[in-house]
Structure formats: structure tokens, C-alpha cells
Design a protein around this nucleic acid. Structure first.
Length: 458
RNA sequence: GGUCCCUUCGUCUAUCGGUUAGGACACAUGGUUUUCAUCCAUGAAAGAGGGGUUCGAUUCCCCUAGGGACCGCCA
């Protein structure tokens, strides 16, 4: 059975790269009718925070990524990790190292000064047991051996074992380090496919060594190339759009971000749009690309725009309401209802949900003082604006047809184009030249409010 | 510095040795439109460079250049 996992350390918000890793793991397991597990790698007690953990889970849930079991906390398996370390020690695959951090720092510094590559020299490999001194446990990496990582994305990666140092598996306080914990947990969880970022490739070699020493069957590895920022550099927290929260805030729909992430480093023929079911049905590991990809914010927005336009009204309503609650926006019920009712008009120029709010601004935040009367109204247009106001004052309820008729009447009477009438009307009614059509504006505002706004200026 | 990885339009990518190198975003032009936008149509735009192998190379091999990742008692 296929079992995949996502194993974040809760030391920060969910990164866009992590989200993609999780997505690929999730999709593959679902595609194969397997399981997808979450492992919280919380062994760094200093930096791990509960709030990050829940933020990560929430973000994944937001993207439609769910887990098949309760999260597994790495910190709860520490005893097991230690047991394995002791077993390795007993089997002479590991040894106690008494070198002090200061000593090692110094060696590193010297190496750096001389431009030489530093790896631990194995000084304590054959050291005698020191009593009462602190030690770490290092793995005794075999010398002069080629170790191969059979990677499903990168192909076979062969590394000379001499370039891998005898890495620490147990710290001087007795706690296990990452590579030990990760290996043991992957074994314990019966992980069949490890899909993760390229930056773990060397770790994979180290983990394979542990698996081999223990006589365990290794999972299959898939190291996907990293996502770079738009500048082509490694994505960092300083980039303003690096976490899923950043996208949530500006009103990117989860389906749009998920679709974008899916197509970043993976493809399926010429297909660009994938709904949730399709992504599960069509995902595979063999179409993962080998080269890193740059983030393209325009593409995300355009995908988002596509979904805003093509989602059903109910779905859009739901997404919009979620957006308001998740971003803690305080909008009173009447306004909210008004936006929802007119969302098919307000979504018109929107690339994000935030844009929908902006588009609705003219309804609630209308400030007539901002309209420069002298610029908008002149001796020419005052006459037909008056005509328009005069005609519209005769009606009580909004009807598209009637508004058209009134416009026609005014245009004919004054012998003008619609533009001559429409532009000043739009400005007076909304304070902006970029707004919905006149009919839609009146529909949203209602006849009374339309008349009120017009009569203030005309 | 060492080890490893990558390189097709600006960006994401397609191409199982033979294609007018395809699609999408962005861009440009035109059309529709009661502003703007949408939508539709059209266009410009790519195999890093150099060697091989081959009848034929974007595709396979080598070198160079460029980019990236890792090199902690972090994960």
C-alpha cells in the first residue's frame, strides 16, 4: 500500500514550497488509494510552536489537503529513536565521539581559512571509552563505498561515501538528531514514498545508510526541485508572498492556489485547469520536472480570476464568506448581504476577493466631497444630466429596460453619444471612472440612492 | 572550497531522434462591449555555447558557461 507523509517542523508558517510538497504527497496517496500522514517534527523545542502547528494544518485544510490519521509527533517517538541509536552503537555501526563543539568549530575555521572542505575527521572512531565525559553518537559511515540514491525524479544519484561525514545521530544531551528520527519514523510509519524538496537529497543518502545498517527496506524517494522567488533566488520568509497566509490575505481562492501549485513542476499534457477530483485522478510522479521553477504572481492572479469568473454563484459566495471570516474583516450584515446579492456584477473586474471588496467600495464608502464638481460638470453636460435626473425621478422601481429607455430619450433629445452622458453619471454616482455599467450601478444602488446622489450635484 | 543537481519563448511547461518546436500566463494588435474589464481573433516570442555519435539531434554522450541545493550537537 502507498503511504506518504508530510513532515513539517512547526517553526514557521506554511511555506508555499511546503504546501506544494504536501499537495504532491496528498495527491499521490489518493491517486493510489493509499494513505497520507502528517508528522510534526517538533524535536527542536526552542523553535517549535503550537500556533505554527495549527496554522500549518489549517492552511493545508484550506487547500483541501486532509490527512488520514491524527498527526504523529516526532517528539513522542524519541525513546524509539534512542533505542535504534543504541542498537547501532552495539552493532558497531556507530561510535561515541568526545570532541567538544569548540574543538570542532576550530577545525572548521581552519579548514575555511585554507579554502579546504571540512568534514568531521573521524578522530573518535576508535577512541577508548571515556568515563564521565560528554559525548555524541556518530554514525560510522563506511569508507570508499559508492552509495546510490535511486530517485524517482532525479534518477540515480551516486555519491562517494568518503564525502559523507560521520554525522551525529545522538546529541550530547542524549536526544536524537533529524536524520535518525526521520529514518526511524519513516520506518515506523511504513512510509512507501518519500516526496519532498530537493534540499533533502543529501539527507536521503544519510537516511539510506541508517536503513541499510538496520537492514530495513528503504522507501522510494522523490526529490522535487525547489521553488524560487521571482528574482530567481531561494524563496525566503522575507518575500512578501511566500506563505499560504499571504495569498489567503489578498483573496486568492484555495482552488486557484492549489491549481497553480499543482502545475508548478508538474504537468499533464496541455491541461491547465484541474479541479480537486481531476487533480487526484490525473496526478502521477513521473511527470514531475527536474528543474526548479520561479514563482509567477501574475499567473496566480490570472488563475484566480478564472476561478472567480467560473465558480458557481453559490461556490463564490461560500469562498467570499470564508475570506471575510478568515481575514477577520468586519463588515456589517447589510453590507455583506448587498455584496453577495450583487456579486455577479462586482466580480467583474476582480482578480482577487479583495478586489470584490474594493469594487463594492462605491456602495458604502461614497464620499461626495471627493467629487470635484467643477471638473465633472460643465455648462454642456449639466443640461442632459438634469434631463436624466428628471426622468429617473419619475420612476419608483429599478427595471433595466426603463433605464435604457430613459438613456435613449436623453441621448436623442440632446443629440449626444452615450459616453457623454455615461462618464459624468458614473463619476457622480461612484466617484470613479472605473465602475460597473450605469445600469448595474443603478441596480446596485437602487433608484432612491441614485436620485439622492445625483441631486447633490446637479 | 567540496559533493550533488539543473538549463526549451520574459514565466510555467509539452516534445517517448525525424514537429512549420505545441499550450498557458504576461505582452502587442484588431473585433465585440453603455466607461473600464471580460470575451473572441490574430501576432511577436525559446532549444545557453562548443564539440562529438547519427542519414538526421532540442532529444543521447563529453566539455565550457550560467543557475541552484547541501556541507550544524536545525529540521
Amino acid at each position: 500500500m502507498v503511504i506518504t507523509r508530510f513532515a513539517p517542523s512547526p517553526t514557521g508558517q506554511l511555506h508555499i514550497g511546503g504546501a506544494r510538497t504536501a499537495l504532491f504527497n496528498f495527491l499521490y496517496s489518493k491517486n493510489q488509494n493509499g494513505k497520507f500522514l502528517l508528522r510534526i517534527e517538533d524535536t527542536d523545542k526552542e523553535r517549535s510552536k503550537k500556533e505554527y502547528e495549527s496554522q500549518i494544518i489549517d492552511s493545508l485544510k484550506w487547500l483541501g489537503i486532509t490527512f488520514d490519521d491524527n498527526p504523529i509527533y516526532q517528539s513522542k517517538n524519541i525513546l524509539e529513536h534512542k533505542n535504534i541509536a543504541n542498537e547501532l552503537l552495539k552493532k558497531n555501526y556507530a561510535y561515541k565521539c568526545y570532541c567538544t563543539p569548540e574543538e570542532l568549530d576550530q577545525k572548521r575555521d581552519v579548514a575555511k581559512k585554507n579554502g579546504i572542505n571540512y568534514i568531521y575527521d573521524g578522530k573518535c572512531r576508535d577512541a577508548k571509552e571515556h568515563k564521565n565525559s560528554q559525548f555524541v553518537v556518530r554514525l560510522k559511515v563506511e569508507k570508499n563505498k559508492k552509495i546510490t540514491l535511486f530517485d524517482g525524479v532525479q534518477g540515480d544519484v551516486e555519491i562517494e561515501s568518503n564525502t559523507i561525514e560521520d554525522f551525529v545521530i545522538l546529541r550530547s544531551d542524549g536526544s536524537p538528531t533529524y536524520n535518525l528520527s526521520a529514518s526511524v519514523d519513516d520506518k515506523l510509519m511504513n512510509i512507501s514514498h518519500v516526496i519532498r524538496g530537493d534540499d533533502h537529497k543529501i539527507n536521503a543518502i544519510k537516511q539510506i545508510i541508517i536503513f541499510q545498517f538496520m537492514g530495513w527496506k528503504t522507501p522510494k524517494y522523490f526529490h522535487i526541485p525547489l521553488i524560487h522567488s521571482e528574482e530567481g533566488k531561494k524563496l525566503s520568509k522575507r518575500d512578501n508572498a511566500s506563505t499560504t497566509e499571504d495569498y489567503k490575505k489578498i483573496g486568492i481562492l484555495p482552488i486557484a492556489l492549489r491549481n497553480y501549485l499543482l502545475r508548478l513542476g508538474w504537468s499533464y499534457k496541455d491541461k491547465e485547469i484541474f479541479n480537486d477530483e481531476e487533480s487526484i485522478k490525473l496526478f502521477n510522479l513521473k511527470n514531475i520536472g527536474k528543474s526548479p521553477s520561479k514563482l509567477d504572481f501574475e499567473r496566480i492572479k490570472s488563475l484566480n480570476e478564472y476561478y472567480i469568473k467560473n465558480l458557481s454563484e453559490t461556490e463564490l459566495h461560500q469562498n467570499f464568506l470564508n475570506y471575510l471570516t478568515e481575514t477577520n474583516q468586519k463588515i456589517d450584515e447589510i453590507h455583506k448581504k448587498k455584496i453577495l446579492k450583487n456579486i455577479s456584477i462586482l466580480k467583474n473586474k476582480a482578480k482577487t476577493l479583495q478586489d470584490i471588496c474594493k469594487n463594492a467600495n462605491f456602495i458604502f464608502n461614497y464620499d461626495e466631497k471627493l467629487i470635484d464638481k467643477n471638473k465633472v460638470i460643465n455648462t454642456k453636460n449639466i443640461n442632459y444630466l438634469k434631463d436624466f435626473l428628471n426622468e429617473i425621478s419619475k420612476i419608483k422601481i429599478f427595471e433595466e429596460k426603463i433605464i435604457s429607455e430613459i438613456s435613449e430619450l436623453v441621448l436623442k433629445k440632446n443629440n449626444i453619444n452615450f459616453k457623454d452622458l455615461g462618464q459624468p453619471l458614473r463619476l457622480i454616482l461612484t466617484g470613479s471612472t472605473q465602475a460597473p455599467s450605469i445600469k448595474d450601478i443603478i441596480k446596485i444602488l437602487g433608484i432612491n440612492e441614485t436620485i439622492r446622489r445625483l441631486s447633490r450635484h446637479i
